[in-house]
Deep mutational scan, measured.
Amino acid sequence: TTTITTTNEEDARRIATEWKNKGYTVHVEKRGTTFRIEVR
């Protein structure tokens, strides 16, 4: 599992989409101002 964190919502969406397009399972969680993107 790879975890990526960013405070930028646009980055979070872009990163999540990129990983999904590669065939990975992506889970995005917002904690306060931080977005945690888990890639499996």
Rank of each mutant, 00 (worst) to 15 (best):
D11W: 09
K20F: 11
N8T: 09
E29D: 07
E38L: 13
A16W: 06
T5K: 06
K22H: 06
F35L: 04
A12D: 00
T5E: 13
R31M: 14
T2Y: 15
I4S: 02
K30M: 10
I15P: 00
W19S: 02
T33G: 13
G32M: 04
E29T: 13
Y24D: 01
A12N: 00
E29Y: 13
R36M: 14
I15F: 05
E10Y: 09
T5D: 07
R36T: 15
V26N: 00
D11A: 10
G32K: 04
E9Y: 13
K30P: 04
V26H: 00
I37A: 01
H27K: 11
K20P: 00
T25D: 13
I4V: 07
A16F: 07
G23W: 01
F35W: 15
T5W: 15
T33Y: 09
T33K: 11
V26S: 01
K22C: 05
I37Q: 00
H27A: 08
R14G: 04
T3D: 04
K30I: 10
E29C: 10
V26W: 00
R40H: 13
R31I: 15
T6C: 06
V26F: 01
T33A: 12
I15W: 06
T34R: 07
I37R: 00
R40M: 14
D11L: 11
H27E: 08
E10R: 09
R40V: 13
K20D: 04
K22I: 05
R14F: 06
A16I: 11
K22E: 04
I15S: 02
Y24W: 06
G23Q: 02
T2G: 06
K22G: 04
D11R: 06
E10G: 08
V26A: 04
K22N: 06
A12L: 03
T1W: 15
Y24T: 01
N8A: 05
T6G: 02
R13L: 14
N21S: 11
W19Q: 02
D11C: 09
W19E: 02
G23H: 03
W19N: 02
R31D: 15
A16V: 11
A16Q: 05
E38W: 12
I4L: 09
T2I: 15
D11I: 09
T7H: 11
I15Y: 05
E29M: 09
I37T: 01
E18R: 07
T34Y: 13
T5P: 02
T17V: 09
T6R: 03
A16M: 09
E38C: 06
I4Y: 15
V26E: 00
T34M: 13
I4A: 03
G23I: 00
Y24R: 02
T3N: 06
T5S: 08
F35M: 03
G23V: 00
T34E: 14
E38A: 07
G23T: 01
T17Y: 10
F35H: 04
G32F: 04
T33F: 10
A16H: 03
G23E: 02
T7D: 15
N21C: 06
T34Q: 12
T3K: 05
H27F: 12
T3E: 07
I4N: 02
V39F: 05
N21V: 08
R31K: 12
R13K: 12
K22V: 04
T17D: 13
E9K: 08
T34K: 09
T17W: 12
R13D: 10
G32C: 04
I37P: 00
T5G: 03
T6D: 02
I4F: 15
E29W: 11
E18M: 12
G32I: 03
R36K: 10
W19I: 03
N8K: 06
K22L: 11
T7F: 11
H27V: 13
R13P: 01
T3W: 14
I37E: 01
I37G: 00
T1R: 06
E18Q: 08
V39I: 15
E9S: 07
Y24L: 04
T6K: 03
R40L: 13
F35S: 01
T33D: 15
E10L: 09
F35A: 01
T34H: 12
H27I: 14
R36I: 15
V28L: 07
E9T: 04
T34I: 14
T33W: 06
T1D: 07
F35E: 01
Y24S: 02
V26C: 00
I15R: 02
W19R: 01
T7P: 07
R31Q: 14
T3M: 11
T33E: 15
T34D: 10
G32H: 04
T2N: 08
K30W: 07
K20E: 13
T7M: 10
T3I: 15
I15D: 01
A12S: 05
I15C: 04
K20M: 14
T33S: 13
T25G: 05
E18F: 15
T25P: 04
T17G: 09
N8P: 01
R31W: 13
E29G: 05
H27C: 07
T5F: 15
T1H: 12
T1Q: 10
T33N: 15
E10N: 09
I4K: 03
K22F: 05
T6H: 03
R13M: 14
T2V: 14
V39C: 05
T34A: 09
V26T: 04
T33P: 13
T5Y: 15
Y24E: 01
W19V: 02
E9M: 08
V28F: 06
I4P: 01
W19K: 02
E38I: 15
A12H: 02
T6S: 07
R36L: 15
I37S: 00
I4M: 08
R40K: 13
H27T: 14
A16T: 06
I4H: 06
T2M: 15
E38R: 08
D11F: 09
T7W: 10
V26I: 05
N8S: 13
